[in-house]
């Protein structure tokens, strides 16, 4: 009964997220939309704490994370905001990697193949998001090693091979129920993939890449929702995943580029990206 009430209250949080996103896409209501969405998040966190109890350990984590988040968000220059979004997005992706990993380590986790598949996907997408976002951050911050698009020889072939290996590992993990080592390998290979996917893309295209990675981190959160069987994660994760793809496409159109062109044509755009990163 208690659990059912909590789940019902999670629905309120999910509805608020939907309204928040809706408001955010119109100039007049955008500020309100962000606040509604933040309220939805606060509600979801409080509901979760009602179930788990408020341990000192967990509060310490919340306080440390809040302080780091506040300091980063307040100190940042207006012109550096896109790369900060990339960094935050990466942290969100990394969080899903750790959540799915932690669930696999728990003896009480039901190791059915659907849960294992969801865990593998959270780890994969989360790791790609984290490392891809870090590279995007480096490019926008104009760190020395990312000044020019990085030319990796036959990068598409290498990526294709890595995707193949990842698929095999996922099949192995879901098929055999033997999870911890395959999960680690998935996270490691997906980390490399995150770097090789974003590194060849020019700095000017980074806003689009961040929008795409943002969509990925939503999908990773949705996958995590399947692991812990929590609807609010599934709903808001897939909301971000789907609306993120739409936003990515809108941004591509505004820049007169196609999404495929940005993702696969990284090297051709090298000439265009020598100027300052456009936002």
């Amino acid at each position: 009964m208690y659990d059912a009430l909590i789940n019902l209250a999670y629905v309120v949080s999910a509805i608020l997220f939907i309204f928040g996103l809706k408001f955010m896409s119109h100039p007049r209501t955008a500020v309100k939309g962000n606040l509604v969405s933040a309220g939805a998040m606060l509600l979801a966190i409080l509901l979760t704490l009602l179930v788990t109890g408020v341990g000192a350990y967990v509060v310490a984590g919340l306080v440390i994370g809040s302080i780091i988040g506040i300091v980063l968000a307040v100190k940042i220059q207006m012109t550096e905001m896109p790369q900060l979004v990339a960094l935050f997005n990466g942290f969100g992706g990394a969080a899903t990697v750790f959540v799915a990993g932690a669930e696999l380590l728990r003896p009480n986790t039901i190791g059915t193949s659907d849960v294992l598949l969801a865990a593998a996907l959270s780890g994969l997408i989360g790791a790609v998001t984290f490392w891809g976002s870090l590279v995007a951050y480096g490019k926008l911050q104009e760190l020395q090693m990312f000044k020019k698009p990085i030319d990796i020889p036959s990068v598409h072939l290498i990526n294709a091979i890595m995707v193949m290996v990842l698929l095999l590992l996922i099949i192995l993990m879901t098929g055999t129920g033997y999870s911890v080592l395959p999960y680690l390998l998935i996270v490691i290979i997906a980390s490399v993939l995150g770097v090789t996917l974003v590194a060849p893309i020019g700095g000017a295209d980074m806003p689009v890449v961040i929008a795409l990675l943002n969509s990925y981190s939503g999908l990773a959160a949705a996958a995590t929702g399947f692991v812990i069987e929590n609807n609010v994660l599934i709903i808001s994760g897939s909301l971000v995943g789907a609306s993120g793809i739409v936003l990515t496409q809108i941004m591509c159109k505004a820049m007169n580029r196609s999404l495929l062109n940005v993702v696969f044509g990284g090297l051709q755009s090298a000439a265009a990206s020598t100027g300052p990163a456009a936002d």
Partner: peptide
């Protein structure tokens, strides 16, 4: 803003941490 929403994985993180 939608990036902040994807931080909803905090719910899973709180459950795992407890």
């Amino acid at each position: 803003g939608s990036n902040a929403i994807s931080g909803i994985s905090i719910v899973g993180a709180l459950i795992a941490a407890s």
